[in-house]
Amino acid sequence: MTNFTLSKVDLNAFIKSLSKNFDVYAPVKDHVVDGGSVRFKVVSDAKVICLSENAYYPLKELFFRKKEVLFKYSEKGLEVPVKKVKSKAILGIRRCDLHSLANQDRIYMREVPDPYYIAEREKTLLIGYHCKKAEEYCFCGSIDLQGNADIMLYELPGNKFLVEVHSDNALRLVESLKKIFKKTDIVIDAESRKIEGSNRLQKKDVHSFYDNPGWQEGIDKCLSCAACNFHCPSCYCFNIHDEANVHNMKEGERIRTWAGCQLKSFTRVAGEHIFRDTRKDRFRHRIYHQLQYFKERYGTTLCSGCGRCIRFCPTKIDFIDILNRM
């Protein structure tokens, strides 16, 4: 497909135009409410957008909701609520988060088509952003990244983006905005698609490490707070519970919420038996799910190499270090 250029000055016009049909989300840095962290928020002005840092919380919460009503029950029966969702355009998604989103799509759109997820996801326009340099804990270069955006933005000299278009809808959109998207012959070569300094993980096949004594190293620091689970853009586990309506106890909702495998409650069965009782067991399970189990089943690693589970771990347990030492 043809490539385009977009001057950063015109980003605002692009957002304004997108806003007509979409809720436009982009990474925003806020010191007052978010402690200086970057979050995906609805924006109406390009000024607030921060592309220089990856988002504190991942994108998945826009599709795989933290709390989803699976159905309402009453004496009349069960009813799945109809979701009215405004289409989303999300700008500034990094390659790692696109990989995670592709994994979530795989699970919730193809493996077990999930009407709740699909309703949120199906009309979404993804606008990716190629970050040039790895942050301290990133290791996406060690991961075979999958997943594509509809539009991909690359930094060009001269305060410009190179715009790659990957879907027909996106092409129609870009071509309809001739004033800001200019056709170009520039192409991104393989070298420029790499992200500098992101090859931290040397051992990609964890298969033989299951009984390695190295797992204990660093795990003593684990607080079992599940920050790694909730910051992870890929984790897709959940809990289900019923919530009765206090005004009429015969009515209520069945609710799905995010779950964290680092918590003891994750494997607790009747009789108070906990299958993965030690912190080591739980930690190793997470890494194995991320790097091995998912790959065995679906062909790609669940992990995207975004490094959030290390960066936002209160005690900064670096599982890459742990694996590399094994």
Binding site: I107, Y108, E111, V112, D114, Y236, C237, F238, N239, I240, A259, C261, F266, T267, F275, H285, Y288, H289, Q292, Y293, E296, R297
Partner: peptide
């Protein structure tokens, strides 16, 4: 999906 019942993948 939910992950709770997983035994070594």
């Amino acid at each position: 999906l939910c992950g709770h019942c997983m035994i070594h993948g």
